[in-house]
Write a protein that binds this DNA or RNA. Sequence first.
DNA 1: CTAGCATTCTTAAGCAACTGAAGAATGTCG
DNA 2: CGACATTCTTCAGTTGCTTAAGAATGCTAG
Lengths: 396, 396
Amino acid sequence: MKEARLRGARESILDAIRASEQLSRVQLATMTGLTEAAVSMTVKRLLADGLIVETGREPTAGKPRTMLRLDPAARLAVGIYLDEETTTYVLTGQTGGVLSRLARPAPESGDEQEVLDRLVADVEVLLSGSGVDRARCLGIGVVWPGPRNGVRNPDDAPPHLRGWRDDELGKRLAEATGWPVLVENDATAAAVGEYWVARLGPQQGFAALYMGSGLGAGLIIEGRAMRGGGGNAGEFGHLCVQVDGPACWCGSRGCLEILAGPRTVVGAAASDPVAAAEAGLDPDAPRQSVIAGFAAVARAARAGAPRCGALLEESARYVAAAAESIVNLLDLDLIVLTGPGFAAASSIYGPAITSRIAAADGRTWHRQVRVTVSTAAAAASATGAAALVLQSHIRG
Amino acid sequence: MKEARLRGARESILDAIRASEQLSRVQLATMTGLTEAAVSMTVKRLLADGLIVETGREPTAGKPRTMLRLDPAARLAVGIYLDEETTTYVLTGQTGGVLSRLARPAPESGDEQEVLDRLVADVEVLLSGSGVDRARCLGIGVVWPGPRNGVRNPDDAPPHLRGWRDDELGKRLAEATGWPVLVENDATAAAVGEYWVARLGPQQGFAALYMGSGLGAGLIIEGRAMRGGGGNAGEFGHLCVQVDGPACWCGSRGCLEILAGPRTVVGAAASDPVAAAEAGLDPDAPRQSVIAGFAAVARAARAGAPRCGALLEESARYVAAAAESIVNLLDLDLIVLTGPGFAAASSIYGPAITSRIAAADGRTWHRQVRVTVSTAAAAASATGAAALVLQSHIRG
DNA sequence: CTAGCATTCTTAAGCAACTGAAGAATGTCG
DNA sequence: CGACATTCTTCAGTTGCTTAAGAATGCTAG
């Protein structure tokens, strides 16, 4: 690391402990580049503030080291994920672990004030139900499908949120609750969540590929989320994988999403009688959500249904090529698959990506890319939303 | 900015002046987030050290502001570009301007010591010939085609450098000259050079697309070059633009470089009798360099030759799609074309990229991507190499 | 059981960089 | 000439770190 001075001893120390689970003072000194004296003083203050705790000792050749951990309950964060059908709330501790969870059906009405009131009330329920000290809550992270600044596939926005802009929602929720509110897209939030719960360090750059109703990527480089000039970085679904491919809703052509995105997969399955039967998709049924439809296709494929399997394999060929592009462009050695889509079909997408990348990976790039599936990938957004808040207190 | 504390007042102030050409103390205070007091004291020291100079005053409603600029001659840097045919040396001042230049034919021998001796001797000539104070030279930047850590297309390495590894070259040159040596690939160096001479600020993220004998990209985000985990970020040429495209030397398939790279364009021109005649390529002539061959094709196209024009248009379609992918993935609003290839054919590639991106740009992404051509694109690597050294003293 | 030893952690003095508040400098305008 | 606006400087005070010294802790050898 050796970047202590670049962001204050407190933050460096907290981040080092977060990534390593537990560390002694001397270990912290070498990892952060601070002197042992500085660590000692800062740790004393962190202990006094209750942010960290001493947990046992480890023998050495001399005086045993006293190990330090984050106190999970010292600081809390609320994460909210607004889905088409459900609103999910989680309360996490400082270590990213979920303390309590709440799921509500999405409001039917699109009335702004009503939606807001529901959010405020539900957060209230979450907090009072878990009996925690509300003063310890650092803030609220909110995630909804689609990128920021009003940019999204109109079809992807939850119906009751069609009229909202993300920054507006954040501002009004902050006013109503008194807590700071961070709004983020699903992929970036999931990436930050992965960074947090998988205890990755700043030296581990990675891309979290997220499949919900679309395809996105959260990019974490040097421990920081890349958001781009307009906050829309990570548009994985709009990498071009076929120069003169079909027109995409974004206005371009040959985008990954239009060729291999979940909406396309579900659409292909629905219009193919065999696949539709395999997946139990009823073409005349009331419009199903893309996420649910994709999960049905994936379930069928896992159960051995050949047409659904073929559709997913076909999609995975494109996704794998795009993943390889990201890896080559950013020189990453970790890809994390997350979100409900990849949670349902990681057994197809994972190997496809791995084997595509393997061809040039070691031989040409002297690299060893790992492809992993996020734990709790299906709920990654909600916990990621909470992690955003925690992260903001460590990276300022 | 407001990131003064994150890297010291000196660096913040120098970088702000660099990007703005000239600034007053109070302007510096607001831009860097430092207090006026801190700026005042730091500026006093910078003036004493001779790094900056006061240049005139600007009227205000009150006391006029004293403007500050970098003193171009206060700090120098040497840039070296190792080409297949030529070794180019430049000496630049602190502002990135070229003070003196030297070009030598590349050594024929591949003997390591001989190559090294030539470099040392030529730097000597460059410095003594321009009569500058060598104590003011901060170091040497070295650029050669292909990425780092020994990763490259074997065909692209200059013959006399086949046996070298970049880090080895840097180390031995540093030992031989006593100066710090930075080794970088051509695209990243060109990007840093562009950042420097075009006076871009840290808020301006951009990609410098570089066409030499291959295709690369230098990525500058938040004022820092993205190098990736293994130092190989920016492999623009290995974005996949066709899932089942032809096999690439890297081991994968459908890479941009194999479909539309300069080597491919030249190869197609050489094997097409009409195009070969237009460009004056002699299929039996001693093997020409890719860069020279591409320049010949571009020259013919500019002169109206239809087959050569068509080949470049075809290549540009692919390059444009890959450029759009980068822009979407990183949410950039600036693409800079640089390197000898784009210098020769920017009139074809520039519009192709612009129009491809335009389709979705404003409408969907609320963005306005600019596509520019680097000034002195053909020599961007050498000046970029020098800029690397300057940059390292501001971001160090 | 005590004396060395290795290692971890703490304390105290000092330095460097920045902040805040006050004021000095330098022009314009009535 | 004097009020005003603005830029720049000075100085005392705070913060956060470093360096240097030493205290604490447990193991091992006599």
